[in-house]
Design a protein around this nucleic acid. Sequence first.
DNA 1: TCAATATGATTTCGACTAGCAATCATGATC
DNA 2: GATCATGATTGCTAGTCGAAATCATATTGA
Lengths: 192, 192
Amino acid sequence: MIPSRPALEAAHFVDRLERLVRASEAADDLNPAQWEALRYFVRANRFSRTPAALADYLVSTRGTISRTLTSLEAKGYLRRGPSSRDGRSIECFLTAKATKALSRDPLTALARDIEAACGEDTPALAEGLRSTLLTAIARNGGRAFGACFTCRHFRADVRPDRSAPHHCGLLDEPLSQVESQAICVEQESQAV
Amino acid sequence: MIPSRPALEAAHFVDRLERLVRASEAADDLNPAQWEALRYFVRANRFSRTPAALADYLVSTRGTISRTLTSLEAKGYLRRGPSSRDGRSIECFLTAKATKALSRDPLTALARDIEAACGEDTPALAEGLRSTLLTAIARNGGRAFGACFTCRHFRADVRPDRSAPHHCGLLDEPLSQVESQAICVEQESQAV
DNA sequence: TCAATATGATTTCGACTAGCAATCATGATC
DNA sequence: GATCATGATTGCTAGTCGAAATCATATTGA
């Protein structure tokens, strides 16, 4: 199937926009892969802050990710520690330096441009891109990494604990309100 | 200014979509930069098929581009020759091998996903992205590289020659119908 | 229970890429 | 015609990536 001209143009624009972002990223002392790692960890829930999950998210290899994290840790953006859930696994935490860096994330500049250019049509654009992403991920056999609360294992308000009222049916763990908004490596769409 | 949530999400989706494309690109014997060079040259008009124009388009340096082109030439995707317009300049031509490679461009797969996901909203998505790109380029002080016929130097149907009826007022050159659709390094928006 | 297998993280290795700065040639300017 | 701007390339260096090997821990199933 040959895509229509608007579809081809849209793909080109995605490509060029991303290249502009990458050009800005080099200005800091972080490279594109390192930026993406920071962006991931700040949005990932506690089941998903591992090198392997990041490798899946970025469609990269674990070896490559390992070195990216070593580099981030050396520069003081990240701390690695053993996982309490799995003896093989490593858990990653962002430092205050990382949080500060994220406040000047070049991707935020792109978001501003989107808003300036699209105005009230921004939500429609976001929805179109979201559904495109899901289509593309399905085609490539990858994982969606959607928000926790959109998952079919999510159970809302089933616990008496007010600080963690929700529940993950897959991992059998309580979930706070904030956690339910985070992205999760295990997330699966509601629809069957 | 802090962007709205939909704007931030849209930016994230652009980022992730591009990463998926990059992951597919590695499957061929071309790397991302080489793919982008091929995509550029197949769409660039004859005033724009130079290393310097490509460097501007990709927001890269001429040294880097020079090496990318050397690599493409060694692999048989590209041919470099002297420019007839400028003794310092080099003109690049894609080979049949490049044309064939472009038919399996991973970015075309993205275009298909866009069309599958957005259906009749695809043109609206393309417009939103186009106007975002123009905003982003303006902010970064770059060049737009728009289609020739959208340029303020473009003069339609001013020549008797049916094979090249249009005219570029900046370079003082005749333009064919096909050329007027191509992207141009000199393109400037109509609006003042 | 315990061997076989799967998964998670890391490291080594080699190929490649990027940007910077220097160099050389040609064009444009005054 | 001297000076400066522009176009292309290359040496240098730092850094990136992926594949494969290695080691540790979990999981599975006979």
